[in-house]
Design a protein around this nucleic acid. Structure first.
Lengths: 195, 195
DNA sequence: TTCGCCTGTATACGATCGTATCGTATACGA
DNA sequence: TCGTATACGATACGATCGTATACAGGCGAA
């Protein structure tokens, strides 16, 4: 991290702090201090605090797009498993990005609307492709299937900050993921309750 | 609303503004203005801004507890339908409370941890009862079933602020709810994809 | 009545907010 | 080696933050 320049360090620091304490809960002095640079640099590179957020938004949205579109190249329940596994790997690599995504979604950032739409579009396409391949059960409400997939993608992210306390480990811990993957696979093909 | 006293009006105003713009995004002057009282009254009744939030937390948590425990007195998929329908009625009556719940959960309020735990406990009990009555399929991961239920309860709340834009109506609009209820019923008993 | 209490208002205070300004150091091509 | 752009720092400014203080009217108990 030390070899990063001021601009990149500000992005890192901003992403982490916005994720943890929210946009309006974080001051520019705090960001600059964590990045180890002076406050003025925010203005130099991003114009303002809001400009910094926009840049962070852009980068995180790009990561999510990449993540989802790579996983949904597969089909059926296999694609869902890929999505979960890719998400785990991503979270291990860029945990701050996930928590930022979560916070941003809750704060109704300019970028968060775009992010949600992108997520919905990806899931809609996924459902559509699977229907064409005959992998969808008959009579399924396709729009709700897409919404359902978005919710189940975001769910663990929403619970993540409470996960250590409630379950003793991260929602993206290998063991947790294995159980989640098994459960989701089962639910999506057979359900879990008797009718 | 006009016949409410200062204390109650502050709670209403705080709940709405915290829900919309977050805790640190909302100033005490704004709350007092919306409530139509003076700033000093926050200190009189709640000691501080944080004290006001704690009081709001208490009230919203109580509402959620009431909501969930009433619905889960029923069994099986019928209980899930009840939960959805009760939630709709609650949202129609107290829309701000739902949005507050959402925001609070994202901000990791002192109260939000308690709320999530309560939600988990309710769902765990629900799963356990259904297992005893033989309404659960064999070999289901019960802990994950509870987590899954929490996620699917919170999901629409998370999407709600984007719902009007993305779907043209609230997540708790009758039509939306009907489709959601049907989809969730189907998924929980049969899934939606072929294996 | 008078006292104390409760609800409520008005305003002042110090801290912190985001932003603007001005400064220097370094790098690099002409 | 000069000119200029870029990278970065120090500090000042006005606004707004949450909180504290001072005080006013209403009301029941003495």
């Amino acid at each position: 991290m030390t070899q990063l320049n001021g601009r990149q360090r500000l992005i890192r620091a901003g992403r982490r702090l916005f994720a943890e304490k929210g946009y309006s809960g974080t001051g520019v002095r705090e960001i600059a201090a964590e990045a180890g640079v002076s406050i003025g640099l925010i203005r130099t590179h991003f114009g303002s605090k809001a400009g910094l957020r926009e840049e962070i938004d852009r980068q995180v949205i790009a990561q999510i797009e990449e993540l989802c579109s790579r996983a949904t190249r597969h089909l059926g329940t296999e694609a869902l498993e890929h999505l979960i596994e890719d998400a785990v790997e991503w979270v291990e690599r860029e945990r701050d990005a996930l928590l930022y995504l979560r916070t941003s979604l809750m704060e109704r950032t300019p970028g968060s609307q775009a992010l949600l739409r992108e997520l919905l579009e990806i899931m809609r396409r996924f459902v559509q492709i699977n229907r064409r391949r005959g992998l969808l059960q008959d009579g399924v409400d396709e729009e709700w299937a897409a919404i359902y997939l978005v919710i189940d993608f975001l769910g663990p992210a929403v619970l993540e900050p409470f996960s250590e306390q409630e379950f003793g480990m991260s929602m993206y811990h290998r063991e947790m993921v294995k159980r989640r993957s098994a459960f989701m696979n089962r639910v999506s093909t057979r359900g879990f309750m008797k009718s």
